[in-house]
């Protein structure tokens, strides 16, 4: 019985994380397109708080989703960069290659998502306790 409950719990956890992950991606995209640069961070934080995710789930969903969104957007925009703007800008900012620009972009998205998710989860925990 316990094993079944544990499995059910794990499945729920996985499902919840997956749902959070998908919502984080969709919400970050919308917040990024229509909001300020910090819009995706606020969205992830609020989502993690409202969904009552654990710290682990939040960090995982937040970091990977925003990292992926930033990576995907950078790759998408990079494909349209006919005038090598990213390469020239990277050179101007200390000699970064286009690949390094993508890596830095992804890393910033990843860390922002991680911290947003973490803070959101803790806020959610504090609010639910009250």
């Amino acid at each position: 019985m316990d094993a079944i409950q544990t499995n059910q719990h794990l499945t729920e956890m996985k499902n919840k994380t997956t749902v959070a992950f998908i919502l984080c991606i969709a919400g970050s995209l919308l917040a990024g397109i229509y909001g300020p640069w910090w819009g995706p961070a606020v969205f992830i934080m609020m989502l993690c708080a409202l969904m009552g995710l654990t710290v682990k789930q939040s960090i995982l969903a937040g970091s990977i989703s925003l990292g992926l969104v930033y990576l995907g957007m950078a790759l998408w925009m990079g494909r349209q960069d006919k005038a090598e703007i990213i390469e020239k800008t990277g050179m101007l900012l200390g000699g970064m290659s286009p690949v390094m620009m993508i890596v830095v972009t992804t890393l910033i998205g990843y860390i922002t998502g991680l911290l947003s998710g973490w803070l959101g989860s803790v806020i959610g925990g504090v609010v639910s306790k009250k």
């Binding site: 990024g32 397109i33 300020p36 640069w37 910090w38 995706p40 969104v69 930033y70 957007m73 950078a74 998408w76 925009m77 990079g78 349209q80 960069d81 006919k82 005038a83 703007i85 990213i86 800008t89 900012l93 200390g94 620009m101 830095v104 972009t105 910033i108």
Partner: peptide
């Protein structure tokens, strides 16, 4: 500030929705 120049605030500058990535088109 970096060696007499300024590295732009990376939050908005590197954001693929706002910054340099949006300047490629």
């Amino acid at each position: 500030p970096v060696k007499g120049n300024f590295l732009p605030a990376l939050g908005r500058f590197i954001s693929p929705f706002q910054g340099v990535w949006q300047s490629v088109t």
